[in-house]
Amino acid sequence: MRISRIYHPGALHSDQELELTSDASNHVANVLRSKVGQPVVLFNGDGNEYSGEFIDVSKRKVRVQIDAKLSISLESPLSIHLGQGISRGDRMDLVLQKSVELGVTEITPLITERCGVKLDAQRWQKKHAQWQKIIIAACEQCGRNVIPTLHMPTEFQAWVNQSTPALRLTLHPRAEKSFRHTAVGSDGVRLLIGPEGGFSDQELYQTEQGGFHTVQLGPRVLRTETAAITAISALQAIYGDL
């Protein structure tokens, strides 16, 4: 029997009885159809997980008794901050989900010149909340007990010009170097991926001025979601834990 992993905001500790959030309760009772007495694992992002069992399961309320705190880390030794050009539809959702599974540390959605999504500040807040739920669900699925930081959508130039000790990398099919020939150190990587239509000439110039090095994943032009997933996989295979 597969043991459910559930995110719960707030403090957790051994010998604690608690009620899950309404969203989690609905998922446990009506989607997973869990029963009283079944085991469960909770996590809150503090790097630990907490084992317990369901002690009350109804359609609107689920209670859990925690019995132990477990220090289990699945975090990669390689720190990756993904700057992802925002794309339309489920492409952005896919990148967020898979990058979490692959071990990224931070994610910043980037508003670029060719960004296909134009929203006001209030709607960006709602989009950020939606993306946060995707990230948490990915952590529940893949076993991570640390939730990657999701920053608010940021203007491209502001992010590119941020000071960082990390190695700055972006993709180009005609770059001279591959990931294998980069010098990734203990400060990790700041990885820049363009949107569906790619970067404008002005943005490419800004990446050069911002100290980004171009690397290639082969001679073919990849879709934005393919580029992000493949680049993170390559970095983790060479410098991380894949």
Rank of each mutant, 00 (worst) to 15 (best):
G116H: 07
I72K: 14
G197F: 13
Q65G: 02
Q65W: 05
G103K: 00
I3K: 10
Q122E: 15
Q236G: 06
G47V: 09
K177T: 12
T112F: 10
C115K: 04
L94S: 05
K127E: 11
C142I: 06
I135H: 02
V221R: 05
T170Q: 10
Q236I: 05
R5Y: 10
T108R: 08
V62A: 11
Q125F: 06
D93H: 07
Q122C: 01
A121Q: 14
R88T: 13
T149P: 00
C142R: 03
Q202F: 13
H213W: 03
H151Q: 11
G52I: 06
I55S: 13
R123W: 11
I80S: 01
G188S: 10
V36I: 13
R180W: 11
T149H: 11
P153H: 09
D241Q: 14
G85W: 14
P173M: 09
S99H: 02
I135W: 06
Q132C: 04
L20I: 12
P39F: 08
T207A: 15
S163G: 03
R2T: 06
L150D: 04
S71Y: 05
I6T: 07
S99T: 05
K127G: 04
L102M: 15
A24P: 02
D56Y: 15
T149E: 13
G240R: 00
E49L: 08
I80E: 01
H181C: 05
F199G: 00
D67S: 15
K133F: 04
A231H: 01
R168Y: 14
T230Q: 02
F43V: 03
V57T: 08
I136Y: 05
P195Y: 14
W124I: 07
I232D: 01
F54M: 09
G240S: 08
D67I: 13
E176R: 12
S58G: 07
R33L: 11
D56V: 09
M92A: 10
L222T: 00
G52Y: 03
Q122H: 12
T154I: 06
T226C: 02
R63Q: 10
N26S: 10
V184Q: 08
D23S: 13
T21A: 13
E53D: 11
L204A: 00
N26Y: 07
S71M: 12
G197V: 09
R2C: 00
Q125D: 14
A29Q: 05
L171R: 00
D241F: 11
D46S: 15
T154D: 07
K118G: 07
E101D: 03
G210I: 03
F212V: 02
Q236A: 07
R63K: 15
G143K: 06
V31M: 12
Q16Y: 06
I232E: 01
T226Q: 02
D15W: 02
T105V: 08
E106L: 07
A227N: 00
E17N: 13
L94Q: 04
S178C: 08
H27C: 08
A11M: 06
D241C: 13
R33F: 10
Q84T: 11
E196I: 06
P165T: 09
M92F: 15
Q97I: 02
T154H: 05
Q122M: 08
